[in-house]
């Protein structure tokens, strides 16, 4: 069992770093969404994460931090990614309880609860060419690393790597969910924007824990 803990401060930093990465890549995200969607994913995510930033200092517990972040995404992003990312974070917050630090394992359980909420909301399966195709393998890799005795540092690195691989794997897929599905076969050959912004979640975490 890993000794390292994820503190309130670290998770606040995670959200801050995520916002920074999204902002940095918003043009790129919108370009990806132009090819198989409606050219707003970058603007959507940048608007939402910027709104999250205005609240991260207020939280005194991890559940409050994550729930508030999730609700903020829901009420500022709209579109598809608002309810989905919002649900992910809200369900994570509901799973942690009112704490100020989390074990690597408990953080993994919270992520899993978040993903389940997201999948229930989005009615997605793996292989539909959505953010789930990055999130699910990332969580699996994270859990597997911890089970293999890796520390948080390595587990997050493994998750980030798996997320990136999952994201890359969306490129040849034919979309079955979301706006890209209207394109049918023409959706193949393009990387999914949501899978891309999901990968940034793990990049951000790796950055803040120094993985």
């Amino acid at each position: 069992m890993s000794e390292q803990l994820l503190t309130l401060d670290l998770l606040a930093d995670w959200l801050r770093r995520y916002a920074a990465i999204v902002d940095e890549h918003k043009t790129y995200l919108t370009e990806l969404d132009s090819a198989i969607g409606d050219a707003d994913h970058g603007a959507n995510m940048a608007r939402g994460t910027a709104a999250v930033l205005t609240h991260v200092d207020d939280a005194t517990t991890i559940d409050a931090l994550l729930k508030k972040a999730g609700m903020t995404l829901v009420s500022t992003v709209g579109g598809t990614s608002g309810p989905l990312y919002g649900t992910l974070l809200m369900k994570m917050g509901m799973a942690t309880g009112s704490v100020v630090e989390l074990s690597a394992e408990d953080f993994g359980k919270a992520l899993r609860a978040g993903l389940e909420g997201l999948v229930a909301r989005g009615k997605t399966e793996l292989g539909d060419k959505t953010m789930v195709d990055a999130l699910a393998p990332a969580l699996d890799a994270y859990d597997a690393a911890l089970a293999d005795g890796s520390d948080l540092h390595d587990a997050v690195a493994a998750a980030a790597q798996a997320a990136a691989a999952g994201r890359d794997a969306t490129t040849p897929m034919v979309a079955k969910k979301g706006r890209a599905s209207y394109l049918g076969e023409r959706s193949a050959g393009h990387q999914d924007p949501g899978a891309t912004s999901s990968t940034y979640l793990f990049d951000a975490l790796a950055d803040v824990i120094g993985a």
């Binding site: 707003d40 603007a43 959507n44 009420s75 500022t76 992003v77 709209g78 579109g79 598809t80």
Partner: peptide, 11 residues
């Protein structure tokens, strides 16, 4: 009214 091409929010 949502943002351009973006569904408005539940709020």
């Amino acid at each position: 009214a949502g943002q351009v091409f973006t569904s408005p929010t539940p709020d």
